[in-house]
Amino acid sequence: MSSVITVAPMPADEQETTTPAVEIRGLHKWYGAFEALGGVDLTVAAGERLVICGPSGSGKSTLIRTINALESFDEGEIRVDGIALTREPGTVEAVRQRVGMVFQQFNLFPHLTVLENCALPLRLVRGLPAPEARERALHYLAKVRIPEQADKFAAQLSGGQQQRVAIARALAMEPDLMLFDEPTSALDPEMVKEVLDAMVQLAAEGMTMVVVTHEMGFARQVADRVIFMDRGKIVEEGPPQTFFTHPREARTRAFLQQVLRVH
């Protein structure tokens, strides 16, 4: 049966034909004279789990925020599911409908209940009728194990609960790709696990994920590939086994020593 084969790496010729989830070529971005991204090339295959790490200010957020056009870029090319990202409303809408995002600061809508946070975008963007939006929202809230909080407001939840709602809200849009920008950095230590658990489960279901995080345990467990960024460039990348045990670059080693000591 072919389903058995899917765990094995795809044959080379088949890899050619599958559209990558994200394809970035020669990406440059400047803030004035400051180069935030200095020529990034990156391909994320469909179904791949990519972890991006690197010191503060290295351009990790800038990079993943260009993927759903929250950040502009000056040179280079980005393709999401084969769609070339321009500033044209149609393409940006098409890309944003395929890409979900989870932020460090949760960014739940405080004037809406947990349920409305998930259901309103479904109605406004996907045009679902209210009952179906509600049902789908509840389904995804159950997935992150938080359905009993559906009628509360965001401010009434703990940080970990809020972040799980944010994950459910993004998932409810049923995206092809999920971006996470330091989803656990704003959380107290005891809440980190509940959020990581939800992400591990998501990975197990085959979601394509690009995760900026310093949670090296998560990277080891889940990532297919780890990328180390510094000063707007990708310095090193590799599967977690080799990345963590045999980092090639001195900068990577210095960085890993620091995070591994802290965590």
Binding site: R96, F103, P121, V125
Partner: peptide, 16 residues
């Protein structure tokens, strides 16, 4: 700003 970004990332158009 995060509120605008969350709405945009979910695909909401400017008016919405």
């Amino acid at each position: 700003k995060g509120q605008w970004e969350a709405a945009r990332a979910l695909g909401l158009k400017p008016n919405a």
